[in-house]
Amino acid sequence: MLFIDGEEVRKRLTFERCIPLMREAMIAFSIGETRQLLRSILPLGAGRLLGIMPGAMGEHAVFGAKLISITPENFEKGRSSHQGIVALFDPEDGAPVAIVDASALTAIRTAAASAAATDALARPDAGRLALLGYGEQAREHAQAIARVRRLSSITIWGRRRERAEALAEHLCETLDCPATPVDSARAAARGADIVCTVTSAQEPVLEGAWLAAGAHVNVVGSSYAGPTEVDNALVAMSRFFVDSRAGALAQGAEFLRAKEAGLVDDDHIAGEIGEVFAGRIKGRQMREEITVYKSLGHVAQDLAAAWAIYQDIAGEMSRR
Rank of each mutant, 00 (worst) to 15 (best):
G158W: 12
E289L: 12
A56T: 06
R48G: 04
G47E: 01
G94L: 05
A113R: 00
S153L: 07
A104N: 09
A117F: 04
P227S: 09
M22Y: 03
I19D: 00
Q311E: 14
S244V: 05
L249S: 14
E59D: 15
Y134M: 04
S184N: 11
A185Q: 06
R190V: 04
V276P: 00
I290T: 14
D193K: 08
R123N: 04
F89V: 14
M57D: 00
D119L: 09
V205C: 14
Q143L: 10
P124T: 13
F29I: 01
V219P: 02
K282P: 11
E275W: 01
A120N: 07
R186A: 07
W157K: 04
D193L: 06
L234C: 07
K77E: 13
R48M: 05
L249G: 14
A65V: 15
R109Q: 03
L2F: 11
D193R: 12
E16P: 05
L44K: 12
R123D: 03
A87H: 08
P96E: 09
S222H: 07
D176E: 08
L67A: 10
R17I: 03
F15A: 02
K66H: 11
E275F: 04
T199P: 10
W210V: 03
E33H: 09
L129G: 03
Q143C: 06
Q301P: 02
G127F: 05
L105H: 03
V198P: 01
L49H: 10
A166K: 14
E24F: 00
A25R: 00
A166H: 13
L37D: 13
I309S: 09
H170V: 10
G78F: 12
E73S: 14
L206W: 02
I41A: 11
A192R: 05
G247C: 06
H216K: 09
I290N: 01
R79V: 15
A212H: 06
R320V: 15
L131M: 08
P204S: 06
A116G: 05
A138V: 05
A248H: 07
Y224K: 13
V97C: 10
M286T: 12
A113K: 01
S81H: 09
A261P: 06
G214S: 01
A314K: 12
E173Y: 06
E288Q: 14
I269F: 08
D193H: 14
E272M: 11
D265Y: 06
A236P: 10
I313N: 07
R128V: 14
I68Y: 00
T199V: 08
G45H: 08
R48Y: 03
A250C: 12
G45A: 11
R284V: 05
R161E: 15
D231F: 04
N74Y: 13
D265K: 09
I41Q: 08
I145M: 11
H60G: 04
D125L: 03
G274I: 00
Q251T: 09
S223W: 10
M57A: 13
E289T: 09
A28W: 00
S222M: 10
L38M: 13
M22T: 00
G247M: 11
F29C: 02
A111D: 02
S80H: 05
F75C: 08
E203H: 14
Y310W: 15
A130D: 01
R245W: 11
Q285C: 14
L129C: 05
L88R: 04
S223Y: 15
E169V: 12
L50P: 04
G55E: 00
F240T: 02
I281W: 02
T34N: 00
L121K: 03
P181H: 13
A314V: 15
E165Q: 13
P204Y: 08
E73V: 07
